[in-house]
Deep mutational scan, measured.
Amino acid sequence: FHVTIHVGDITFHIHGVSEEEVKKLEELVRRGADWREIKKTIEEIEK
């Protein structure tokens, strides 16, 4: 999957994300995680 996440003024683009990881990111966004937490999760996914 290709994912784009907008957190305030920050936009993250992630490529090659599995469905499971998409759900993890959706959950973070849904519970209102700040951009640092989302960035950390994205960095883990990209490894």
Rank of each mutant, 00 (worst) to 15 (best):
K40Q: 12
R30I: 09
D34Y: 06
L28K: 02
H13C: 08
V29F: 15
T41C: 09
D9Y: 15
R30H: 09
W35G: 03
E27K: 10
H2Q: 08
E20S: 11
K47E: 10
F12C: 02
E46N: 12
G8V: 02
H13P: 00
V29R: 05
T41H: 12
E26N: 11
V22S: 05
H15T: 09
D34C: 15
I14D: 00
L28D: 01
E43G: 05
D34M: 04
I5Q: 00
V3I: 13
F1Y: 10
D9G: 15
G32I: 02
F12H: 01
A33P: 02
T4R: 04
E46L: 15
G8P: 01
E43F: 09
I38E: 00
W35A: 07
I14T: 02
E27L: 14
I14R: 01
V22W: 15
I5F: 05
S18P: 06
D9K: 13
E20V: 08
G8N: 08
V17M: 09
H6D: 04
E26S: 12
H15C: 07
D34N: 14
L28Y: 05
E26R: 14
H13R: 06
I14M: 09
I10G: 02
L25K: 00
E21Y: 15
V7W: 12
T41P: 00
K47W: 08
H15W: 15
E43T: 06
L25F: 07
V29Y: 12
K24M: 14
H13G: 01
D34V: 02
R30C: 04
G32L: 06
E26L: 15
L25E: 00
V22A: 13
I42C: 03
E21I: 14
D9M: 13
T11D: 02
H6W: 11
D9N: 15
T11Y: 08
E21H: 14
E44L: 09
I42K: 01
L28H: 01
E46F: 15
I42H: 01
K23M: 13
G32M: 06
V29A: 07
V29I: 10
I45T: 03
G16W: 14
K40C: 06
I45K: 02
H2A: 08
K47G: 10
D34F: 07
I45M: 11
R31A: 07
T11W: 09
K39E: 08
F12V: 04
K47M: 13
T4G: 01
I45D: 01
V17Y: 14
E20R: 08
V22I: 09
K39Y: 15
E46S: 12
V29G: 02
S18C: 03
S18E: 04
I14P: 00
I14K: 01
K40I: 08
D34K: 10
K39A: 11
E26Y: 15
I42M: 06
V22N: 04
T11Q: 03
T4I: 11
W35T: 04
V17Q: 03
K40R: 12
I5C: 02
S18H: 05
E20M: 13
G32E: 03
I38D: 00
I38K: 00
S18F: 05
E20L: 12
L28E: 01
V3G: 02
F12D: 00
I14E: 00
I38L: 08
G32Y: 06
I45P: 01
I10N: 07
D9I: 10
E44N: 06
T41V: 14
E21T: 14
D9E: 12
K39L: 13
R31M: 08
I42A: 03
E19C: 05
F1Q: 10
V17D: 02
E46V: 14
K23L: 11
G16P: 04
H6F: 10
D9A: 13
G16T: 09
W35D: 03
V7D: 03
T11C: 04
K24V: 13
E37K: 06
D9F: 15
I5P: 00
I38S: 00
I45Y: 08
L25Y: 02
R31L: 08
E27C: 06
R31F: 06
I14C: 03
H13Q: 06
V3A: 05
E21C: 09
T4S: 07
E21S: 12
V3W: 08
E46I: 15
A33R: 02
V17K: 02
T11R: 02
H2R: 09
K24Q: 12
L28F: 06
L25M: 03
T11I: 08
E19Y: 15
F12T: 01
I5T: 00
F1I: 07
I38H: 01
I10D: 04
K47I: 09
E21F: 14
T41Y: 15
H13N: 05
T41E: 07
E27Q: 11
V22Y: 14
R31I: 07
D9V: 11
R36W: 14
E26M: 15
G32T: 03
F12S: 00
H6Q: 13
K24H: 10
H6P: 01
T41S: 08
K39I: 10
K23W: 14
W35C: 05
E43D: 12
E46M: 14
K39G: 05
